[in-house]
């Protein structure tokens, strides 16, 4: 049996010396969808940043793809972040066309970005490449921009896709596109998903496991 994608033991995270997250044990199997619910400030986004290697734990052991992520591994953090890709609440689009935005992560990896691949990723989030591909970032609505940002991560085919409030502030149509794209990412590409959302009903319907956090601790 293959190792889980993530294994956390005794993980602690702190901001300015104040503990904000305590996870005694958490395992995320490959290909699963983990939903994270909880109030604002409960530690959901912090946990997501830890899993996305944008934040180092202050204590504990974090394993990714069967290997312990230590200080040395974090020094080459971009290699880890290329496997576990985060779409955070603070994410923005680059001042480029939609196609260039979707292709950007591929270019960072030195990979080709053929039009067909970009079109496929955009189609997953319900955007037509012929209509949107050459459109400037400044011509997009908020919902379209978020879907482009999601497409820019789906195209990377990451081992883990970490989504922080992917549907917040979107209209009903955009929410449905995002939800469909999330399911397609798992079904077609076998990605492991960790989703933070206040939409508990959606999390219940799509997650294999749903955890609730409160004051930096997992309730169950």
């Amino acid at each position: 049996m293959s190792a889980p994608l993530f294994a956390l033991r005794g993980i602690e995270a702190a901001y300015n010396g104040a503990s904000v997250l305590h996870v005694p044990k958490l395992t995320i199997p490959r290909g699963s969808i983990l939903g994270l619910a909880g109030h604002n400030g409960s530690g959901k986004s912090t946990l997501l940043k830890l899993l996305g290697f944008l934040l180092e734990p202050t204590a504990g052991v974090l394993e990714f793809e069967g290997r312990v992520v230590d200080r040395a591994a974090m020094r080459a953090g971009h290699l880890l972040r290329r496997r576990a890709v985060l779409l955070g609440q603070d994410t923005c689009l680059l001042k480029r066309s939609v196609a260039a935005n979707v292709a950007y992560g591929l270019r960072l990896r030195g990979l080709p970005a053929p039009e067909a691949l970009l079109a496929e990723a955009l189609a997953l989030v319900g955007l037509d490449y012929a209509e949107f591909g050459q459109r400037s970032w400044r011509q997009l609505s908020g919902g379209e921009a978020r879907r482009v940002a999601l497409a820019a991560r789906l195209v990377l085919n990451p081992a883990a896709l970490l989504l922080d409030e992917p549907t917040t502030g979107l209209d009903r149509a955009s929410v449905q596109h995002v939800q469909r794209a999330v399911l397609a990412a798992r079904k077609a590409r076998g990605a492991t998903l960790v989703i933070v959302s206040h939409d508990v009903e959606w999390l219940k319907s799509c997650s294999d496991t749903l955890l609730t956090l409160e004051d930096g601790r997992i309730l169950g």
């Binding site: 996305g52 779409l87 603070d90 680059l94 960072l108 990377l156």
Partner: peptide, 9 residues
């Protein structure tokens, strides 16, 4: 945050 999450070194 955006660039790091996309895998930039």
């Amino acid at each position: 945050q955006t660039l790091l999450s996309l895998g930039a070194d």
